[in-house]
Design a protein around this nucleic acid. Sequence first.
DNA 1: CAGTGGTCTAGACCACGAG
DNA 2: TCGTGGTCTAGACCACTGT
Lengths: 245, 245
Amino acid sequence: MSMTALAGDERLPLYQRLAEVLRRDVMEGVRRPGDRMPSETALSAEYGLAPGTVRQALSALVDDGLLERFHGRGTFVRRPSFDRSLFRFFRFRDASGEWRIPESRILKRSVEPAPSHIARQLRIKDGEPAISMSRLRLLNEAPVLAEEIWLPKARFGAFLDLSESAIGPLLYPVYDAQCGQLVARAEETLTAEPASRETARLLRIDTGAPVIVIDRLAKGFDDTPLEWRRSKGRADQFHYHTEIR
Amino acid sequence: MSMTALAGDERLPLYQRLAEVLRRDVMEGVRRPGDRMPSETALSAEYGLAPGTVRQALSALVDDGLLERFHGRGTFVRRPSFDRSLFRFFRFRDASGEWRIPESRILKRSVEPAPSHIARQLRIKDGEPAISMSRLRLLNEAPVLAEEIWLPKARFGAFLDLSESAIGPLLYPVYDAQCGQLVARAEETLTAEPASRETARLLRIDTGAPVIVIDRLAKGFDDTPLEWRRSKGRADQFHYHTEIR
DNA sequence: CAGTGGTCTAGACCACGAG
DNA sequence: TCGTGGTCTAGACCACTGT
């Protein structure tokens, strides 16, 4: 077993330098979500560090949400999950009161020159080709969310070839499998506004009734913007809850 | 320096048992916000633990938001601050674009029997006396928030004797100084609804226009509910932003 | 059982803040 | 300069998981 020297700024603490090396491995796809990391013993031998120092580096990445630890099993690259999304505060239950993923009906899918506000978000040139999509999400035939989605065509060209039946309600696994684009995290913005005539028709509510608007910009491990979407749902179905200190 | 035995369940790790002992000190008011904790060296001597173990206990409480560490100065009981409140997402700026605390105008202050939904939140008996207050918050004479506040009279009796001019826009310091009630944390719930006629009049918007509604239940260190409030503001001034993974 | 992470010890030395 | 927390070492032993 040969020893590897730690790269990085020599003024930084060793555990931070190790953390950066491991973070880069994940960001560059050398280690993929679900992969097991080398054990703490292996890493301390590899880099010539005390076990406690290696532990500190791994802890930093766990706090950061990049890794997950399981006692007795190992340390793994975390599979991004969007359990923390604002969408979980919509009261979407079926008749039996259980949480379910709403079905998806694609209303429109086309290639358009990206409007400037979309291009800015996706960090592409104004007017560059983008895939535009409208979806309606339904629970037991009842519409619950109206969505508008934009993707840069350069990365998601393969998405256009898919039949609607091949695209389920969850898009991120499709992005990964069909386009090789892995979503690592996202930024969400929430506001409320009166329903336009069009939105009211889709959601079957009164024009002007309050709707919750959630904008989401999804990004890859390397911070590239991958998808922008705007979703609208009935405000009376939304209750966000949080604890503050 | 006598050594103190660690109380608590002997099956738990030492660092957790130490953390619980220190947490209790804060919850019972033995150590108050702003107080400096004993140094790590002092604690390890006091309880006969290795410095690393003491460190782990303190780290747990720092992660928990109970303590704050300052390199070279010490470890302190954190002063609760409500920087993380949902209210920070209201775009409240004055003419120069600076963030400011809105002034407060008290519209009503009285003692009422607690309605049942308030009593349940404050964990007091249905109909027990409670202080009820309506406030309007303004920025440059413009109304920005309409608030309804409820306090259990048993704890906040002294609050009734204060003149309005003695109450500023920030209530929690008043609760502490005048009533001996320290707010440690709070739960907030956000939704949106159409403005009632009354709310519309107060906020000077159209009836039915969307308003953001934030309910807050403030609690003491010992988890006692202290204050319930409902605040309403214009939805078009509200943009919540968050990152998810 | 072997291998993983979790807890704990008993130090050393460094970096920062205040007087 | 002194006391604080921050980094790091080099182990020991425990608890959990999978085979």
